Computed example of a mutant assay.
Amino acid sequence: MRSLKEMLLASSWARELSENQLRSVIDGITVRTIPTGGYVCMKGEPVEYWMGVLDGLVKMASIWSTGKATSFLGLSTGGWFGEGSLLKDEPRKYDVIALRETRVAYMNRATFQWLHDNSIHFNRFLLIQLNERLGQFIGMMEHERLLDTDSRLARCLASLYNPVLYPESNLEIRISQEEIGLLAGISRQRVNQALRKLEDAGLLQIDYGSITILDLPGLRCFGE
């Protein structure tokens, strides 16, 4: 199990901090373990933290009072999220739910604001992160409207390997078909069919409890 400091040093913005600054940032972070199905944060609550996935897997989603739910994206080890809501200082617009037991780093508002006010590297990171996330959501809207289920699932998997948003991801991910279904918003049975099709196309290899990506560019453009 890796430490919070190890996670921070894997983030480009934290590597530029002095030892004293890094110590202050660590003091402003609380690590919590969220059980499978538990809420990392909830829609409508006040935004007091910036969050990072220390290890595990979560999904960003929205559950309406009618019971209808939609999944936006998956957030894997090394990914940070929630900066938009902090910068706008508004109630949270989405739920984040753990798909497996996950350790989450919660950076308090004061520490986030101190970094925002004092670190050029942190502000550059935020600019790149927000731009990358915007592109990700535009792509999701395009895929939802134009692609079939198999192609949407391919894009969903490929999105977990974004080197900007998830710098610690590798081409073998420990993920179940049930978790993929929760991320992509499709049934487990349909996930199995789509994965077999992608495996037959030579894009990935399915193992028990994990998937190895063999052709990431091919996965990103499957169905075009």
Rank of each mutant, 00 (worst) to 15 (best):
Y39Q: 06
S62A: 07
K68C: 03
K197F: 11
Q189P: 12
V31W: 05
Q113I: 06
V25K: 10
S169K: 04
A98W: 04
I180P: 08
V40C: 04
I120H: 11
A14V: 11
E19C: 12
F72W: 10
L160F: 06
Q129H: 11
L214M: 13
N131P: 00
I120E: 14
R23V: 14
G218H: 14
A194Y: 04
S71D: 12
F222M: 09
A154N: 05
L182R: 09
R2Y: 07
G82I: 00
T33P: 02
I186Y: 14
A105N: 12
T66S: 15
S151N: 09
R133E: 07
Q21R: 15
R196F: 13
N162M: 12
R23A: 15
R32G: 01
L203N: 05
I97D: 01
I206G: 02
S11C: 10
A61T: 08
L203W: 02
A201L: 07
C156D: 08
F222E: 01
S62F: 06
L86Q: 01
G82W: 00
V58C: 13
L183S: 05
R174P: 00
M141F: 08
R23L: 14
R103T: 08
I128F: 05
A110S: 13
G28K: 10
A14E: 11
D95P: 01
H116K: 11
S85I: 01
C156I: 08
P217I: 15
F125C: 00
T36W: 00
E16H: 13
L157A: 08
V53C: 12
R100C: 06
M7W: 12
G139H: 06
G78R: 01
I29S: 07
L195E: 10
L171K: 12
S62I: 07
E132H: 11
R196L: 14
V191Y: 08
Y39N: 09
I180Q: 09
Q21H: 15
I138Y: 07
N108A: 03
G38M: 06
G209M: 03
S71F: 06
P163A: 11
Q177G: 12
G56K: 02
N170S: 13
G185Y: 12
E19S: 15
T212C: 06
A110D: 14
M141Y: 09
Q129V: 02
W13M: 07
E101G: 02
E178Y: 10
L57A: 04
I63Y: 06
G37S: 05
P167Y: 07
T66M: 05
D207H: 06
V25D: 11
D27G: 15
T36N: 08
G181C: 09
L126A: 01
V58L: 04
A201H: 08
L204C: 07
S12M: 04
D89K: 09
F222V: 01
A194N: 13
E142T: 11
Q205Y: 04
L8T: 07
L9I: 08
G181L: 03
R133K: 07
N20H: 14
F137K: 07
D95L: 00
T70P: 00
A14D: 10
E45C: 08
I211V: 14
I120Y: 13
T212M: 09
Y106L: 11
S187K: 15
L87P: 00
M51N: 03
R174A: 06
D27C: 11
G82N: 05
P46W: 10
P167Q: 04
V104I: 15
